[in-house]
Every structure is written in structure tokens, then in C-alpha cells.
Amino acid sequence: MSKMTLQTEGDSCLVVMRRFAASPEAVYRAHTDPELIKKWLLGPDGWSMPVCINEARPGGKIRYEWTNGKGHGFYLTGEYLELNPYHRIVHVERMFLPDPTPDNHAETTFEPDGEGTLMTIRMTLPDEQTRASMLASGMEHGMEASYARLEGLL
């Protein structure tokens, strides 16, 4: 059974839910502390994040740069809009592949769930066309990542 769910909601939302066996405080910190982020937000095997800027305050900047160590890489920039420590984060981000994807507005909540945490990410896109192009460019990236992983296997 998969622990994570990903579903579309209405015309312009993607909702991801995932449970963690840790406190909301720990899960929140793992999303806002660069030293922790670099350990897990990496995508397919073989990728690393040499640059991780995460200024966890309203108006603070986000910049992640990934590389597969074989000359392939891409980056993401973003800004924090709201932060309620250990409970909720609202931020906007876009990927550069190398052209920028449309802004993705995301609200992430961390709710106590028994001994652990239920994290919900609700990504809202301004309009259907924007979602379409984000999904399209995401697919390009996803495929490239899959090819990169395949390279690793060969």
C-alpha cells in the first residue's frame, strides 16, 4: 500500500498527502532547514543538490540547484509568502529547465496524526493553461530524470 496520494482537485489543483512517523515540528524543520533538505529532496538516485538556499521567513528566498554529476542539471527558485512554524507554509516556486515554468503556488500543512504527522500540499495554479504547461514541462523533466536513472543502471 502506498503511503502517498496524489490527486487532482477541481480544474486547477493538485493535492499530495503523505504521513510521517515524526512530529509536525520535525517534518516542518526537514522542509525549511537547508542541511536537512539536501539529504532528501533529490529526485531519482544519483542526483544531488549542491546549492540549497532556504530563507524560512515571509519574503524569504528559495533556490535549489540539482545535478546528476554528469553535466545534467536544473534549478528552482521561489519565495515564501507565509510561515506558521510547525503548522503551515505558503510559498510560490518555478523550475528552470532551463526556461521557467509558470509559477506554482503551494500551501503545505503539517497536522498531528496520532504519533505522527499528516502533510498535505495543495498546489494551485492560476488557470488551466498554466497547469497544462506546468504539467507538460514537468513531464519533460520527469522523463529526463527517468533517462538519467536508466543511464545509472547501464
Binding site: 496524489l6 512517523a21 515524526a22 526537514a30 532528501w40 529526485g43 538516485d45 530524470a145
Partner: peptide
């Protein structure tokens, strides 16, 4: 991709 990230996050949290 996200599942893979979150499996790694499980280890970081542990």
C-alpha cells in the same frame, strides 16, 4: 519522484 523523496525523508526524520 515524490515517493522516493519522502522515503528518504522518512530516514532523515528517523
Amino acid at each position: 519522484t515524490m515517493e522516493k523523496n519522502y522515503d528518504r525523508l522518512d530516514e532523515v526524520l528517523a
